[in-house]
Design a protein around this nucleic acid. Structure first.
Lengths: 193, 193, 193, 193
DNA sequence: AATGAATGAGGATTCATTCAT
DNA sequence: GATGAATGAATCCTCATTCAT
């Protein structure tokens, strides 16, 4: 029983299904049919709405990045001091939702996609740029001129620790990850005195 | 006219071809035929020697990790002090050979593979463990008890910076990357005083 | 906001769009969606009006034949003598409108369709029969008993020359084509003397 | 049980199957799978040897044209005088083999293909050029300067009559077709006197 | 040791057609 | 009267893999 205005609903369902399917496979080796079936529609419809497989992936990537950005924004909103905001950004990155199978898989595969797809690389750089800006802005009152360098340090450290936690043999430990980054942060602050 | 003792030569050629092909594609979406053609043999031979596609990938992964390990070993051999050895390890990771298209592609794709393939994850953990040991061992004289934490800090930072350089919009800059990690190292040393 | 009496307008638009689309593709490999989009309606409507793809094609074929028949009729109306009427028929066949991309494509594809579709073959034979009758009728005063043979000669020659002009490497030249057929006509007349 | 040197055998079988399949369908709406099945191989093999559907069609077209050319050559070889050679060319064109379902279908569809595919148009023009040369050459001793015009007349007439016989309601009649063209030939000769 | 031959399984994509609104 | 929604069935093409030689 076809209704009107189904498009946004279907698109959302397909994006969700794509992320889940990538999570289940661990890679982008996912067929449009699998995605469509998980979303409860035909593969033809997926093509109808997105135009092709690559665009489905990009939509999924956009979604993951948007969710992450929203989490960071939410965390920032509650923090009052620069220092608290830095901590909020770090914590947000290591929230348990970011260690869910499908989110990890999405990130890793987006890294791969970014090598080849201009649009994917662009999206990734936008996200990294925003994170960097946030850090720089809040670091300025604390470390002044060094805020750019420190932001690079913390930003890269977040990525590196995320990678290790995500691919380690043990269950990812967000708390420990957060602690590690904040320790580096304290270190940088200590040099100010 | 088949020669004797061709096996190791063929295997090496196929591994090399696999890495190059992954580099050219940016992903593991490479066909055995492409690999075989690049190696100058038939695809049937590739199967004959490796048994299947996954095993070809694992052999390639082993090769990349081995080359990296050799570079580190080589760099360590020339360094006399713990501090020099730490620096050598960092520098080795950011040598220009590690930023070659195909090496970057290999690493990123091995991360992806590691989610799914037990053998791949094992290989990755072995490499990370060895790197960690090296760091811990050489950090001990410098930071004592904290050597494990510091090694985690530096190890993750190396990975994170590598990722950002590899996927940035600019040409990767190994010198800058090295400087960034060593700055963090100095920071950690500074706390000793 | 549907209007009343839209049906004939829609049908005409769809027939026109079909012919144009066949012209653009050069073949019957055109989708109902393409046709419908060109006509500015939904593909569902095209089905609604015509019942299916084949019927859309047949309607287009009928249209092309009807236009051609009308051109011939128009030309005949102005000619006063049998000889002038023969010339008019020939000229009408090689008018520039008949060498438009989409008209050529229509004819060639109708030949193909005529092998398979009974209705298409019937339409084609009706057209050929009418042309033949016209020729025979007007040839009678000029060549008497031989009018049937001469009509076959001229009719086939028209088709053959049309084919060659339409598919040649050069831009079709209706004047030259006309001259060639009329030369054959004169030849046939000459034998009377 | 794979043998060596199968390629030419498979190619020939696939070309034959293509022509037959086009004949059965009456159009180029034939799937690679149908063709392959008729040739007794997998569709994958068809792609392997030809690269794609269009190339299969072109190979089939080349074959049909080559067969026709061979028939003309054969007929020409036995004729001693220019006049006999003209007659041989005409007769060859209307031999019963050329009215076989699949040959007719091939020709009609190649006309269609020639509008779109450069290679197809080229092939068709080569064939027409060769026919024309043959006619011109043998007409020269008979009609002198007019040989080019007469060749055009006869060539186009052959095509036109072929078309009408092939698409008529009655069984094609090669004898009658031949007679018709030769009558036009006599007409042209008569003007010489 | 090495390969040409061959294929089954699948995968992205297209499309005519249907249907509820 | 008209359409957006939806799909089943195909179609081209690819590819890992097998096998006889």
């Amino acid at each position: 029983m076809p209704k009107l205005g189904m498009e946004p609903i279907r698109r959302a369902a397909l994006v969700k299904a794509t992320i889940d399917e990538i999570g289940a496979a661990g890679s982008l080796d996912v067929t449009v049919s699998q995605i469509a079936k998980r979303a409860g529609v035909s593969s033809a419809l997926a093509h109808h709405y997105f135009g092709g497989k690559e665009q489905i992936f990009l939509a999924a990537m956009r979604h993951v990045l948007a969710v992450y950005a929203a989490e960071v924004r939410g965390a920032l909103g509650m923090a009052q001091t620069p220092r608290a905001r830095i901590e909020a950004i770090v914590k947000a990155g290591f929230g348990s939702s970011n260690f869910r199978r499908e989110v990890v898989a999405s990130w890793l595969n987006f890294y791969v996609l970014a090598q080849v797809s201009d649009e994917a690389r662009r999206l990734l750089n936008v996200y990294q740029g925003r994170l960097h800006s946030n850090l720089v802005y809040n670091l300025r009152p604390l470390v002044g001129d060094r805020s750019d360098d420190v932001a690079n340090h913390l930003g890269a450290l977040i990525d590196g620790i995320y990678l290790r936690e995500a691919l380690g043999t043990q269950v990812p430990n967000g708390k420990k990850a957060t602690r590690q980054v904040l320790a580096a942060f304290e270190l940088e602050l200590g040099t100010q005195a």
